[in-house]
């Protein structure tokens, strides 16, 4: 890392890249729209029908929309990376930022930063909007676990975006990454059901969502569950870093 190219201009460059691609920027916005929007619709439609209609865990039910928002988070992370593999655009990038580690870390930092901010806004709005339709069943900020869940849901969305970004750096295609991740998070809960324990609770989405549970029954708690997701994301990012560094562009 002998290149002294400062990091701030590279972050600026990466920001221009993200905001200038409709798909990527749209996916970032969609994290908020999908999570909070579906939460509000679901809460308005069935929220007050009976206790537990949004899921057995009322706190997790307050973040039902995140099942959809995480797909937007995947798309954001994956498309921000895959844009570099489109028509060999990476070659042009590397003529401006030849230090690949600096390029990769700047891009990942920006994806993480944007997803974190969007995730926090999403967490707050999802909770507040969703609970506004819950009437007598409504939770309020300050109830046990709610602040942790609001903050944690934002971190969860960020980590999912980074997980997808790292995988895309390895596989070089958003389409491949999304066609693996989306079925994975949609199908796995059906397959493993509510069976606590086993390896299932260590899967990225299962572990990460524990931070939104009122009570956790397995071996992982809310923060350790989020930690497990962070390890998944870190492993994917490390793989991506190796791939970006080693491969011919």
């Amino acid at each position: 890392m002998s290149a002294a190219l400062p990091t701030v201009p590279v972050l600026h460059s990466e920001w221009i890249k993200i905001r200038s691609l409709r798909g990527t920027f749209g996916a970032l916005i969609a994290i908020l729209v999908a999570t909070a929007g579906i939460q509000a619709l679901a809460a308005a439609a069935v929220g007050q029908a009976e206790a537990g209609s949004m899921g057995e865990d009322p706190l997790l039910g307050a973040f039902y929309g995140i099942n959809f928002g995480q797909i937007a988070a995947f798309t954001f992370g994956a498309s921000a990376l895959s844009a570099e593999f489109h028509n060999g655009a990476l070659r042009t990038t590397l003529t401006a930022v030849p230090n690949r580690t600096r390029f990769y870390l700047s891009k990942i930092a920006l994806i993480g930063g944007l997803a974190f901010l969007m995730g926090q806004v999403t967490g707050v709005l999802t909770f507040v909007l969703g609970q506004a339709f819950m009437g007598e069943y409504a939770l309020s900020l300050g109830d046990p676990g709610t602040l942790r869940a609001v903050f944690g849901s934002g971190v969860y969305l960020m980590l999912m975006a980074l997980f997808a970004a790292g995988l895309t750096a390895v596989l070089r295609s958003a389409a491949v990454v999304l066609s693996v991740l989306i079925p994975f998070v949609v199908m796995v809960p059906f397959i493993v059901g509510q069976a606590a324990g086993g390896v299932a609770e260590f899967l990225p989405d299962q572990a990460g969502q524990l931070v939104m549970h009122l009570e956790s029954t397995g071996r992982l708690g809310p923060w350790s569950g989020l930690g497990v997701l962070a390890l998944w994301a870190a492993a994917a990012l490390a793989g991506g870093w190796l791939a970006v560094r080693r491969r011919d562009a």
């Binding site: 190219l5 400062p6 201009p9 590279v10 600026h12 460059s13 990466e14 221009i16 890249k17 200038s20 691609l21 409709r22 798909g23 844009a83 489109h86 028509n87 060999g88 655009a89 990476l90 070659r91 042009t92 003529t95 401006a96 930022v97």
Partner: peptide, 27 residues
């Protein structure tokens, strides 16, 4: 300054944005 492959650009960006992100990286 290098021109290696004229196709090496993301088709979804405008020409101006393409040059802007390159310019930004080198101040």
């Amino acid at each position: 300054g290098a021109l290696l492959d004229a196709q090496a650009a993301h088709g979804g960006r405008t020409a101006r944005d393409h040059l802007r992100f390159l310019a930004a990286a080198n101040r």
